[in-house]
Structure formats: structure tokens, C-alpha cells
Amino acid sequence: MSVIEARDLRRSYRTRTGLWKREKKVVEAVRGVSFAVEQGELFGLLGPNAAGKTTTIKMLITLLLPTSGSASVLGHDVVDDAREVRRHIGYVFGGDRGLYERLNALDNLRYFAELYGVPAREQKQRIGALLELVGLTGREKERTEGFSRGMRQRLHIARGLLHDPEVLFLDEPTIGIDPVGARELRATIGTLKGQGKTILLTTHYMFEADELCDRIAVIRAGELVAEGTPATLKQRVTGGHVMEVETFGMPESAVAAVRSLAGVSTAAVEERGQAQVLLVQVGPGAEVTSAVLGCLGGVNVGRVSSREPTLEDAYVELVSGQ
């Protein structure tokens, strides 16, 4: 039995537009998503904005009822057995809402410790340890209305871990945290995984997903478009490599010419300061360097390099859809 199982999950929202006409519109946020996460696995859910990641998570953590399909966590159905599910899961979302602004950090944690039934004897020690873990020790007596974005995010993480849940849902947990803090948090997530927790993570940082996840699913417009380990995803998209050409003042026609070359799967331009960097995804075994440079003709060319595809390259190709 898998720890998290989603079976053909669907969810649509009804929204109203207009004040008077009241036109009803149905948004199909998630359209038939199925996946399974095994015990101790760290599963990444990636996808562009509005792809339906948060909606999927909210169905799994019992905050939204699926329009159709079913899901279970630790064998408990998320609709019929919601309370049992809630007891065993932790939920951390990104952003600066979700705190009692008028209470200090300690009281915020105490309240949720009560709601999760953490025994009074353990609370003090547990809250202390978590504050230490997220680096908020010494600030716990301050009201959270004065907290910076990263501090709030850290407090969210501590809250999600209060009852030592077996399954964790992390929806963009590193958003707003500084690079050093984010690195520490990634280490923490690694430690949690080491303790045998099952984790479902969403993030927009590809290197983060690459570093942490055992398996990744890419969701686009409510549907899964790919699933696999970071390594297989990279291979699946491009067996080849990525060529980067630094240029100055490159016409659009040149990009089109590069795209039409045999052996080139896609080409895109990225602005980097003064320069435009041409990113060419090269198919397996193809040798296109001189042909690409030929297309550029009289354009001023700087550094030329070639590298292995990253998860980001794979992701961009998957979600831009071909």
C-alpha cells in the first residue's frame, strides 16, 4: 500500500464574474491526476503557476472535496476518513498568511500544539527544539505581525512539524527564505526524509527539486505530463546537451534559422545584461556547433559553451509543450 495515493482526482471551481450579470464560469483546476508516493519517499510536484498543484495538495489534506476521483493517505480515505488523515499529516504552505498576527511566535505554536493534541509535558521541549531547528530561538516572544517574510515562513515550518507527522505536505516551503536559510531548510527536509517521513513537495526552484526529490511529477493545466526520477526526466526530454552562445544584437531571423537546423530540438534566447544568450537544445549524438555559428553570420559572438541538460531545461520543454 502506498502512503499517498491519488486516483483520477478532479476538481473544478465555480467562479462568478461581474457584479450584476453574474456570469458563472467553471475552472477545471485539476483534471484526472493519479500518482502514488511510497513510504519514505520524497515526491516533487512541479508545474507552472495555476497548474493545479495547490489544489491537488488541498484535496489530499482534506481541505477541499474532490469533484470526482478519490485519494487516500496512509490508507485513510481523504473524504470519508478525514479526521484520521489530519491526525497523521503536517501541512506547510508558502506565503505570509496563516499566522495569528496578534500573538507571539510561542503562542502561535502553543495553540496549534493544543489543537494537535501534543501532550502538555512534551510541548515545551518540542516547541523549543523546533524554534531551534528553524532558527527563531530568541525571537519567540515577539508578536508575529512584526515578522519578516522569511521569519513567517520559518514559523510555518515549525508549526507543520509540531505533532511529528508521518506524512508532510510542503507547498513551496522555501519561498521568501534567504539563500542560506533555504539551504538549511533543504538540509532539514533531507533529515526528515532520513527519519523515514514521506514528503510531498512543490517548488518553482528546479535545482531544489533536483537536489531533494526521489521522484518528480510535472503537472500542466491540471494534467500530469511526465513522471519519473530527476535523472530519467532529464534524459527523457533531451538525450543530448545544451549549447549556450553569447551574442550581442542578434536578429530574430537568426534564431528561427537555428531552430530549423537538423539536430536542434529547440532554441530560445535569454537576456543576460548586455548580451543575449542563445540556448540551443541539441538532440542526442548531433554535432551542430559550426552550423549554429554559421547561422549567426555577421552577429557579434562572445563565449560559446556546451553543458549537460539540467532539470530546468527538461521542465521548460515539458511545460511549454510540443
Binding site: 482534506t62 481541505l63 489530519r86 501541512y91 498568511r97 499566522l99 495569528y100 489543537l115
Partner: peptide, 18 residues
């Protein structure tokens, strides 16, 4: 508004009791 309503509902304590 605070975004805590969801967190209350997501907790295992019965809502009436909360």
C-alpha cells in the same frame, strides 16, 4: 483573512470544539 481558518480545519480537533 489571516489564512488560519484552513489550518484550524486541517487539524484533527473537531471544529465545534475549536
Amino acid at each position: 483573512w489571516l489564512g488560519t481558518l484552513e489550518l484550524l480545519v486541517a487539524s484533527p480537533t473537531r471544529f465545534a470544539l475549536i
